[in-house]
Amino acid sequence: DLSGKLIIKAQLGEDIRRIPIHNEDITYDELVLMMQRVFRGKLLSNDEVTIKYKDEDGDLITIFDSSDLSFAIQCSRILKLTLFVNG
C-alpha cells in the first residue's frame, strides 16, 4: 500500500535515488542526514548542500528549512529533489 507513503526521488549529478519515506514529519536536518547516507561518498557532512524540489510548474524551489520541506511534501506524494553541492 503506497498511499500512505511518501516517495523521495533525489538527484545528485547524474545519480538518482528513490527512497520511500514512512514518516512524513521529517525535519530538514533529518532530510540532510538521509541524503548524506543515500549519497555516501558523494555528499560529505561538511559539504554545503542546497536542496531544491520541483513544484507543479516544474520550477526548482529551494528548501531552506523544515517548514519549506513540509510544504513541499503537502504538494506531492512524490517529492523530486535535486541536490547541489557548493563544496
Rank of each mutant, 00 (worst) to 15 (best):
H22T: 11
M35H: 01
S70P: 01
L44T: 09
E14W: 06
L33C: 08
I63W: 02
L60D: 10
F64K: 15
D1F: 10
I16H: 12
I7K: 04
A72I: 09
S67G: 09
S66G: 06
Y53D: 00
D59H: 15
D68F: 02
V32N: 05
E30W: 08
I78V: 07
R40L: 08
V32T: 07
K80Q: 15
I26S: 00
S70K: 12
L69K: 00
E24A: 11
G58D: 04
S67M: 07
V32R: 06
K42D: 05
K52D: 02
I7F: 08
K52Y: 08
M34K: 08
A10Q: 02
P20M: 13
A10P: 00
E30I: 02
K54D: 06
Q36L: 11
M34H: 07
K9V: 15
Y53F: 11
G58T: 02
I51K: 01
L83W: 00
D47V: 02
T62G: 13
K9C: 15
D1E: 06
H22N: 11
I26F: 07
G87P: 11
N86S: 11
L60K: 04
R17F: 08
G87A: 11
Y28V: 03
A72Y: 06
N86Q: 13
L12R: 00
I21H: 08
T82D: 10
K42Y: 05
I16W: 05
I63C: 03
F39K: 01
S67Y: 09
N86A: 12
I21A: 05
N46I: 09
I21C: 06
A72T: 02
D25G: 07
L6V: 11
V38C: 09
L69V: 10
K54L: 09
C75Q: 13
L79E: 10
G4H: 10
I51C: 03
I78F: 14
D25A: 07
D57W: 04
I7T: 09
S45Y: 08
I7D: 07
F39I: 00
D65H: 05
V32Y: 07
L81T: 02
K54Y: 10
D65N: 12
L44F: 08
S76A: 08
D1W: 02
I51F: 11
E14Y: 11
V32I: 10
S70R: 10
Q36H: 10
A72H: 04
D1C: 05
S45C: 07
R17V: 13
K54M: 13
S45Q: 11
F39D: 03
I73R: 05
F84S: 12
S3L: 04
L43Y: 04
I7Q: 04
H22M: 10
L31Y: 01
D68I: 07
L44A: 07
L83M: 04
E14V: 09
E30T: 08
I73C: 07
Q36C: 08
L69R: 01
I16N: 07
E24G: 10
S45E: 12
S70F: 06
G87S: 12
K52P: 01
G41R: 05
F71M: 14
T82R: 13
F64E: 14
F39L: 00
R37F: 05
H22G: 11
I61G: 04
N46E: 14
Y28M: 05
I78G: 10
M34Q: 14
T27Y: 01
E24R: 05
F39E: 01
L2P: 05
V38H: 11
G41T: 07
I51V: 11
D55R: 15
I63H: 01
R17G: 03
S67K: 10
R40M: 08
N86I: 06
N46L: 05
F64Y: 13
D57L: 14
P20N: 11
D55H: 15
E30N: 11
V38P: 02
L79M: 04
V38G: 05
I16E: 15
L33F: 07
G41D: 13
F84Q: 12
L2C: 11
G4V: 09
I78P: 13
D15E: 15
Q74L: 04
A10K: 00
D25S: 10
R77H: 07
I21N: 03
S66F: 00
L79H: 08
S67L: 08
A72F: 14
D57I: 15
S76E: 06
I61R: 15
V38Q: 14
H22S: 12
Q11I: 09
S70H: 14
N23Q: 08
A10F: 04
F71S: 14
D57K: 15
L33E: 14
L2G: 02
Y53G: 00
R77K: 11
D59L: 12
